[in-house]
């Protein structure tokens, strides 16, 4: 096996490890946060309708809270998009570092 083959397979193995850690945790955390957001939405909507029925919230207040929740959903989607971008950026940086480190360790030593 040539030095380049060692280098190439080292990079491929390293990429697999990085992807397993970073990209899998991205999916897991995103799902966990989305589930928590939906569960909160359900709980809040139930509480608001009860308060509307009891007369402790009026129509304008109830409408404002519901529409506010929709705005929060947009903010939540932006947060998830930003978190994905940050993780992909970290993945990219690690990948570049991996290739450079592997090249140095195999070709220069």
């Amino acid at each position: 096996m040539s030095k380049f083959d060692d280098f190439f397979s080292g990079v491929v193995d390293g990429v697999k490890d990085i992807a397993k850690g970073d990209l899998k945790s991205l999916l897991d955390a995103g799902r966990e946060d989305a589930e928590a957001f939906l569960e909160n939405s359900k709980t809040q909507l139930k509480r608001w309708t009860e308060k509307l029925a009891a007369g402790t919230l009026d129509k304008e207040e109830f409408t404002d809270l519901v529409e506010g929740r929709v705005e929060l959903a947009k903010m939540f989607a932006l947060t998830q998009a930003g978190i994905s971008a940050a993780r992909i950026q970290r993945f990219r940086d690690k990948l570049i570092k991996l290739v450079i480190d592997k090249a140095f360790s195999i070709f220069l030593l």
């Binding site: 509480r47 308060k51 919230l57 009026d58 207040e61 404002d64 809270l65 506010g68």
Partner: peptide, 12 residues
Amino acid sequence: VGDEYRVEKKAQ
């Protein structure tokens, strides 16, 4: 602002 609305809006 009403009491209940205040509590809910604060959380939001």
